[in-house]
């Protein structure tokens, strides 16, 4: 029983030329990301900031599902915990917003690790079930009267937008964009390293065959909870970055719908393919806008239909398209 198709996270050894295609496109893409705020309006910059935030959250889910083969429909809960940790610390604790990011990561890591402990005994559907319940319960937990002094209950919390430090002559939106970009890139690099490390290989061994992995001496329990914790921590950072960018947190911003969106982003981007996270994220940020402009409330249906299209037509998502494009470009150059 393998949970997901046997895709490896490190790409197969291909020729030198394909390496060039991949590198050129990566560098081009990075360049675009760095230069975007210079050309874009503040609103577009904000949207791309959110795109990076969701890409990071999708990356986290990718590590969990693509890396260790576990499911989570509860990512919205960790996203919420990260966002609230940040907002509460900034508003009530007077903590610098930059400091809240590692704190959010730590809080979410512990929460994820603890949640992962009982989840250890659960495989596949049970884990999906437990995390589904977590995502559904989270908005209600955030609304609880006990915590209202800090969380602001149903109203949520408004945070202020930080200015660029050191008197840099850039707008707050642009500063937030670069901040988010820096964190996303760092997390992306760390995730790539993690998955190609001993830990990452152990996780993938568990994904492919848990029993065989444990027979090889891999501490299945440890690595499964670790994957859960790491995934939660990254999601928490994404949530905190999102809270800073939006300057507002409220329970109803973190419902099960957010989990659906992140899950869709992963499926669209290609499960287990880290660069796909950004494609998936672009998808979940821009498609609802288009759908809502056609009819209000349509975005859910569009999401659903698209998930179906992806799983039936291109089961490996954006990765399949990327590989197809790469093959086409190489094919042309080869024949020229």
């Amino acid at each position: 029983m393998t949970a997901i198709p046997q895709t490896t996270l490190t790409s197969a050894k291909t020729g030198k030329r394909s390496g060039i295609v991949r590198q050129t496109s990566s560098v081009l893409f990075l360049l675009i990301l760095v230069l975007v705020p210079l050309a874009a309006t503040n609103f577009v910059t904000f949207q791309i900031t959110m795109l990076l935030v969701y890409a990071t959250a999708i990356l986290a889910l990718n590590i969990l599902t693509g890396g260790s083969g576990q499911f989570s429909l509860g990512q919205s809960a960790f996203f919420a915990i990260g966002a609230y940790t940040c907002a509460v610390l900034v508003e009530h604790g007077g903590v610098n917003y930059l400091l809240t990011l590692p704190i959010a990561a730590a809080v979410c890591f512990v929460t994820g690790f603890l949640f992962g402990l009982p989840a250890l005994r659960l495989s596949g559907v049970y884990l999906a079930l437990a995390t589904f319940a977590l995502a559904t319960a989270m908005p209600q937990l955030l609304k609880l009267g006990y915590f209202e002094r800090w969380t602001g209950g149903v109203q949520g919390l408004v945070t202020s937008k930080p200015d660029a430090p050191l008197g840099l002559p850039i707008s707050p939106d642009t500063w937030l964009y670069y901040l988010t970009l820096a964190f996303s890139l760092a997390i992306y690099a760390a995730a790539t390293n993690l998955l190609s490390s001993r830990t990452g290989r152990a996780m993938m061994a568990i994904r492919d065959n848990e029993i065989a992995a444990s027979a090889m001496g891999i501490d299945v329990a440890l690595y499964k909870t670790l994957a859960f914790g790491i995934s939660a921590a990254i999601t928490g950072v994404a949530g905190a970055l999102g809270a800073i960018a939006v300057q507002f947190v409220a329970p109803d911003g973190y419902t099960f719908q957010l989990s659906i969106a992140l899950f869709l982003g992963m499926v669209v981007g290609g499960v287990g393919w880290l660069p796909g996270s950004i494609a998936g994220s672009a998808f979940i940020v821009f498609v609802p806008n288009v759908a809502e402009s056609i009819s209000k409330g349509l975005s859910g249906a569009v999401f659903g239909v698209l998930i179906l299209l992806v799983i039936f037509v291109i089961p490996r998502g954006a990765r399949q398209i990327a590989e197809y494009l790469q093959a086409t470009i190489e094919g042309k150059r080869g024949s020229a």
């Binding site: 393998t2 949970a3 997901i4 198709p5 599902t65 499911f71 429909l73 596949g124 559907v125 999906a128 659906i260 899950f263 869709l264 499926v267 499960v271 009819s295 209000k296 409330g297 349509l298 975005s299 859910g300 249906a301 569009v302 999401f303 659903g304 239909v305 998930i307 179906l308 992806v310 799983i311 089961p315």
Partner: peptide, 23 residues
């Protein structure tokens, strides 16, 4: 299909039915 694909299918069904009901 794999568990993942099936979970995706159910999530899709969830989103579609919820959205169509609302619309």
């Amino acid at each position: 299909a794999s568990i993942l694909t099936n979970v995706a299918g159910f999530i899709a069904l969830f989103a579609i039915v919820n959205s169509v009901t609302g619309m």
